[in-house]
């Protein structure tokens, strides 16, 4: 797997309503359930389910009461992978702020599509082939949303046969380029 594919995979793994906020709310070593719940204003069952998923994905270790030497120490400890994902989450958060269209990582395939365009895969079929597993329907939905939001634009290319190129507007291009560099430094 080359660097580009690793970056795209990482960006895909950070997708989800809660993955990013939880990573951002965790402290250097990890965190406890109650402060996380209060910080995120999330239902306990939702938080539990998300933390469980992150444990399964190898981002967190859930310590048993016996393993915690002090009740103030984290109940969930970040693994090396988790710390790396926390850094990646910060980079994503920063780029979302710079782009200024709210959260992009909460939508399936949202960021990977932009990063793919940033890698100069600008035709529909190219984007589709780069992002393994994406359906034409979801790709077309996201592109339509980004067009409507003024984040990307279409350009007709006549050669070799007429086709659309999807290109990013300047205010999106720069943060996405930065994000791909930031993520590349982590994978």
């Amino acid at each position: 797997m080359n660097k580009e594919q690793r970056v795209l995979r990482l960006s895909r793994e950070l997708t989800g309503q809660w993955t990013l906020p939880i990573l951002l709310a965790l402290e250097e070593r990890g965190g406890r359930f109650t402060p996380l719940q209060n910080k995120l204003n999330i239902a306990p069952s939702r938080l539990s389910a998300n933390l469980k998923k992150m444990v399964e994905d190898g981002l967190l270790i859930h310590l048993s009461p016996a393993e915690r030497r002090h009740p103030l120490l984290p109940e969930y400890v970040l693994t090396d992978k988790g710390r790396l994902y926390r850094e990646a989450a910060r980079a994503v958060h920063l780029s979302e702020q710079r782009i200024g269209h709210g959260r992009l990582s909460d939508k399936v395939w949202g960021l990977p599509i932009l990063l793919t365009i940033g890698y100069d895969h600008t035709r529909f079929q190219e984007i589709r082939q780069t992002l393994e597993g994406i359906t034409p329907r979801i790709l077309s939905t996201r592109l339509q949303e980004y067009l409507e939001d003024g984040m990307i634009f279409r350009q007709i290319k006549d050669e070799p046969r007429p086709t659309f190129l999807y290109l990013m507007e300047k205010q999106v291009q720069r943060p996405i380029r930065q994000l791909s560099l930031d993520l590349a430094s982590l994978v």
Partner: peptide
């Protein structure tokens, strides 16, 4: 501090306090 789920109480003995920290699983 409800936000972080932490509290402490004084006991009947000087400088002897009990602290509490909210946890998901308690034994």
């Amino acid at each position: 501090d409800p936000e972080s789920g932490m509290a402490m109480v004084n006991t009947n003995t000087k400088d002897c306090v009990i602290g509490f920290s909210e946890a998901e699983t308690v034994e």
